[in-house]
Amino acid sequence: MIEGILVEGLVYSLMVLGVFITFRILNFPDLTVDGSFPLGAAIMAVMITQGASLWFGLAISFLGGLVAGMVTALIHNKLKVPNLLAGILTMTMLWSINIRVLGNRANLPLLRQTTILTHVRAMATDVMSSVVAVLIFFLAVTLIAKFLVDLFFRTDLGLTMGAMGNNEQMVIATGANPETLKLIGVGLSNALVALSGAFVAQYQGFADVNLGQGIIIAGLASVMIGEFLIRSNRIWILTARAVLGSILYRGIMYLGRYYGYYVNLTPNDLKLITGLLIIVSLVITQMRTSKPKALLVLPGAGGEEAPPAGAARAAATGKGAL
């Protein structure tokens, strides 16, 4: 049970990192995710059944997500469509595209196909149980992805992107085009999401066009759960808590699935629970920060305002934080 939760949390954590980038760093609520997640899964499944190299499949899934995100950013940039609507447009169009990718059907099973997990399990025979091997594999994948995301947000490009969600005027003042930054940011975010989809397809053994339904809300809930754990303005902690949030969220969902029947819950109620989880998170955040904040416009790069120690010092010197 615990291994299952951990693996699921890790597989989906790439998607959560993507959602974290758009919602928290760019302040660009991006709904493309519901389409780019199954897109990654569909591309990967087709690549596997066609016998392509697994690494090539992952790369193409990544690229597919990148393009999907860039389409959303372009619609938003060039047609001045609000970002939410731009995301919904791409997401809707992707539903049809995903069915095309899957070869005009809604799902593609991967039973008896060689996936990355087949290799992982083969390598682990005689050394450890296949469950542990899969867990270690996804832990490694997640850590590498997290490390690369951390590294990216330490570069000049990444730092500038960090300022985007917080203060677009400042980004303009540095002579950088906010449209270019959104293009790169939303693109990379969806590339991560698609990569997550590609892994989920292999883990679950099928790709389905409806795999992405509600994935954005799951991602957002994970991000918000993570934010309860630690307060910080360091990027490596912010990404770490996104991963932890993903695992915790899967844990909560697992509890709902397996013990929910005691209180008459069915798996169909999980979306309701996810939604309520987000609402509760928002309420608690608002009570904690004491000053009311609009829905989903919570602070950008840092995730939240002052860390408690800093706030205390600011108060002590008589200079309140702005």
């Binding site: 917080n166 203060n167 003042a173 303005n233 602070p299 950008g300 790069a301 840092g302 305002e305 702005l322």
Partner: peptide, 9 residues
């Protein structure tokens, strides 16, 4: 004064 800097960084 808020427009010149990013407060969460």
């Amino acid at each position: 004064p808020l427009l010149g800097t990013a407060s969460n960084m």
